[in-house]
Computed example of a mutant assay.
Amino acid sequence: MNIEIDLTQNLKSKPNADQIAFGTIFTDHMFVMDYSTEKGWYDPRIVPYQPIALDPAAMIFHYGQTIFEGLKAYTTPDDRILLFRPEKNFRRLNLSADRMSIPAIDEQFALAGLQKLIEVEKEWVPKAVGNSLYIRPFIIGTEPNLSLAPSKTYQFIIILSPVGSYYKDGIQPIKIHVEYEYTRAVRGGTGFAKTAGNYAAAYKAQEKATTEGYSQVLWLDGIEKKYIEEVGSMNVFFKINGEVITPELNGSILEGITRMSIIELLKGWGITVIERRISLEELYNAANCGELEEAFGTGTAAVISPIGELNWGNRNIVINKSEIGSLSQKLYDTLTGIQTGKLEDLNGWTVEVK
């Protein structure tokens, strides 16, 4: 399929590097492709950024049939534009699509469409240190039909948003509240998929944690409320007695691209990484005997988010004196160095946008 390009005649002003709030400013153009059961995916195009016209009965509004991804483009010191493992994001988009009964996309074509869009919007990729271009691919069910069944029509859209540095004042360990009342996901549900309902369902717990002075929520398994799963919308890691432990992928935990990269880096450095169930009780005991050395969340937005304190009912677990650990710092520096082209990419993770 050829990608049609319709360029806008009304270019927007670029924001100042120090005035970019996450997800509030969008570039001049977007990528759009349609689907019907008769045609499959068709009519790929780059068009001016604009509102989407949908029937009020469109199934996305009523049954939440939607999936999305999140990745970034970075400017290197020599003015190249790099994507970080984008093929993994489109592979995961198809995993989410399968779970939500959405037709799969051609992953290579989707990546080609993204690269073409960034070529059009290359002036929007921030050059300031710590800034990047956030990329949001998503698919929505568009059929106007209130029947409880998968949509027969869809749109695949990619929008771009310049974002500022996640850590404007340097990496600061965060305080986390352990959530007992609400559940993020259960095995057999949609926890491993990036679908909208997973995130909206987390708002209530996050609101409660915020009012109590905590930055994020630590999610436990939905059955026993015993085993650690995720922190906020991030995967989570613990360094205990020299080993790094992270909850195993069990059907309710998102398979993070940053998580995957962290594990590969650690193993390459000769550090033992164990993917298994880990209970809050085990973590508390490790902290009490001085074996809990570091904890951190991982995700596209922050890359590494060190955890300084966990609130577990009437018990507080303070980790590494609420300071960032040396391993967390090394991982952050290495990953961001590869993403921005400041460090050599020995693993072939980056894709240059020509």
Results as ranks from 00 to 15, higher is better:
Ile174Gly: 02
Ile262Met: 06
Ile253Ala: 02
Trp269Tyr: 00
Asp169Trp: 10
Ile5Trp: 04
Arg45Ile: 11
Glu281Cys: 10
Val32Tyr: 05
Asn2Glu: 13
Asn347Cys: 11
Pro56Arg: 15
Ala97Arg: 08
Pro15Asp: 00
Gly232Arg: 00
Tyr154Gly: 02
Thr272Asn: 14
Ser233Gln: 05
Tyr203Met: 10
Ala301Cys: 11
Asp221Glu: 12
Tyr154Val: 03
Gly256Glu: 08
Arg91Glu: 11
Ile3Leu: 13
Tyr182Lys: 02
Leu71Ala: 09
Arg184Asn: 12
Lys204Ser: 06
Ala104Glu: 13
Lys204Asn: 07
Ala97Val: 09
Ser161Leu: 12
Gly70Thr: 12
Arg136Val: 04
Gln216Trp: 15
Ala302His: 09
Pro86Lys: 02
Arg276Trp: 12
Pro126Asn: 02
Lys152Phe: 10
Leu254Phe: 15
Glu123Thr: 15
Lys152Glu: 02
Glu323His: 06
Pro77Ser: 11
Lys321Gly: 09
Tyr167Gly: 00
Phe22Val: 14
Gln172Thr: 04
Arg187Thr: 13
Thr195Met: 10
Trp41Gly: 01
Tyr167Asp: 13
Gly188Thr: 11
Ser165Thr: 03
Val186Phe: 09
Asn314Ala: 09
Leu335Val: 15
Ser328Met: 04
Leu327Gln: 11
Glu212Thr: 09
Trp219Asn: 00
Tyr203Lys: 01
Ala295Cys: 07
Glu4Lys: 13
Asn285Leu: 15
Tyr227Gly: 08
Arg136Met: 08
Met59Gly: 10
Glu264Leu: 05
Ile118Trp: 14
Arg259Gln: 01
Trp269Phe: 12
Val47Ala: 02
Asp169Phe: 11
Gly299Gln: 10
Glu229Gly: 08
Glu123Cys: 12
Met30Val: 01
Tyr35Leu: 09
Asn10Trp: 03
Asp43Gln: 14
Arg277Cys: 00
Ala112Trp: 00
Lys225Thr: 00
Gly270Thr: 08
Lys267Ile: 09
Glu255Trp: 00
Glu181Asn: 04
Val273Thr: 14
Arg91Leu: 10
Ser328Lys: 03
Ser233Cys: 13
Cys289Arg: 15
Asp106Phe: 13
Ile257Tyr: 01
His177Phe: 04
Thr195Asp: 10
Thr210Gln: 05
Trp124Cys: 10
Ile60Gly: 13
Leu54Met: 14
Ser305His: 04
Gln216Glu: 15
Gly113Tyr: 12
Asn241Trp: 12
Thr190Asp: 11
Glu181Pro: 05
Arg184Tyr: 10
Gly222Trp: 13
Glu293Cys: 04
Val125Thr: 07
Tyr227Cys: 08
Val32Pro: 01
Ala128Gly: 15
Glu181Lys: 03
Ile245Glu: 01
Ser161Thr: 10
Glu275His: 00
Gly337Glu: 13
